[in-house]
């Protein structure tokens, strides 16, 4: 019975069916299924599948985003139930995401946020055009484990370095890890500015975040 339901849950994520995912989450609550099992044996299987398919070039961005949105919606139903049990889903880590000052591009960064959330991270997305003090201030406020910074322009990517230098001055590293991304960002750049890593796409960013936080 629950096996069949798990399958349907995974499928709802794969198909990006947010409403169905919510219904299935509610049904699992009615059936007194353990919310953690529901997440890990049901919905997460779907997210992992679509992530793998994306990596293979078989799934595309809209499918990835819809899966992430469906996952977020399902988890939103299950989290209060976990709290009632006095439990919480293990949080993979708290992440602050932002596009750096002077840059208003955020499609990639938002995707990373969706995929991180779907994978069990607690994501605070500050949006675009964020100066270093906002990013660091928010990280301290929520006791973040990880900062993710995006920049699309070659003229604004230097801001990523400023944030890292500021973190270093404040002695906040290696407590807070930093990942950087954006079209002009290369591995060389990430190394040069002493970021902890960079990834080409949202699926890779999740893997990177897990690795940086020792959650592999």
């Amino acid at each position: 019975m629950s096996e069949e339901l798990y399958k349907q849950m995974a499928q709802s994520i794969i198909e990006g069916e947010k409403e169905i995912a919510i219904e299935l989450a509610q049904k699992s609550v009615e059936l007194n299924m353990h919310p953690l099992d529901t997440i890990t044996k049901g919905f997460v299987v779907g997210v992992n599948y679509i992530g793998d398919q994306f990596g293979l070039g078989e799934a595309f961005l809209p499918e990835l985003v819809m899966a992430g949105e469906a996952m977020k919606a399902a988890v939103a139903v299950l989290e209060p139930e976990l709290l009632k049990l006095g439990e919480a889903r293990e949080i993979m880590g708290r992440v602050v995401l932002a596009t750096v000052e002077g840059d208003i591009h955020e499609i990639g960064k938002t995707l990373v946020g969706t995929m991180l959330s779907a994978s069990g991270f607690e994501v605070t997305d500050l949006g675009v055009d964020q100066p270093a003090e906002n990013i660091i201030g928010k990280a301290l406020e929520i006791d973040a484990h990880l900062i993710g910074m995006s920049a699309l322009l070659t003229t604004t990517m230097v801001r990523q370095r400023e944030v890292i230098e500021e973190l270093d001055r404040e002695g906040l590293r290696p407590r807070i890890k930093v990942m950087v991304g954006g079209a002009p960002i290369t591995k060389d750049w990430a190394e040069k500015i002493k970021a902890d890593g960079t990834s080409e796409d949202a699926v890779g960013a999740v893997q990177l975040a897990k690795r940086l936080l020792g959650k592999e």
Partner: peptide, 22 residues
């Protein structure tokens, strides 16, 4: 009013394969 708004629309998922050669 964000760049990724349309990526989150079901219709995007339904139509992108019809509109774009992959």
């Amino acid at each position: 009013f964000k760049g990724g708004d349309f990526l989150k629309q079901r219709i995007t998922m339904q139509l992108f394969r019809k509109e774009q050669h992959l």
